[in-house]
């Protein structure tokens, strides 16, 4: 297992989500237009490693959050924002939330996030936090 901080551990073998080696992300390459925002995207493996580091230090809930985050690394930026909006209270029907969970599970192989959304769907149903027709 790589040692913390991963940034300074040569064995951490850090890659961006786009597959670039961390060492290639330089100012010169940026000026040359070779580096884009996608090259600043953390990949799943690094987040999973951070989740494990958190878990071993006793921060279980943070580890769980980082595990969800690891799953979300492959979700495009715009869609993540959209997913968050759907999860806000009163935004979605129960069916829409279930569909969101299913999409996370099937399209993005994100079972932890999927289960989290399913749990929300159930609670929203019980606590009247699903989308309602406008009050006036």
């Amino acid at each position: 297992m790589p040692t913390y901080p991963l940034y300074s551990d040569p064995h951490a073998d850090l890659h961006t989500a786009s597959g670039r080696v961390l060492g290639d992300v330089t100012v010169a390459a940026t000026v040359a237009g070779e580096i884009t925002l996608d090259d600043l995207q953390i990949n799943k493996a690094a987040l999973q490693a951070q989740a494990e580091i958190a878990r071993q230090a006793g921060y279980d809930q943070l580890a769980q959050n980082l595990a969800r985050a690891a799953e979300l690394t492959v979700v495009p930026r715009a869609e993540i924002i959209d997913m968050y909006q759907q999860l806000r209270p009163g935004r979605s029907s129960h069916a829409e939330l279930i569909a969101l969970a299913t999409r996370l599970e099937n399209v993005y192989a994100a079972p932890i996030c999927g289960a989290f959304v399913r749990e929300a769907a159930q609670v929203y149903l019980e606590r009247n936090m699903l989308r309602r027709p406008p009050a006036f």
Partner: peptide, 23 residues
């Protein structure tokens, strides 16, 4: 108060993960 703040514990939890997913 939570709903008036336009979130639920789950949407906040998801938001935390969304941020972390971008480091």
């Amino acid at each position: 108060a939570f709903v008036d703040g336009d979130d639920s514990p789950w949407s906040k939890g998801f938001l935390a993960s969304a941020y972390a997913s971008r480091g």
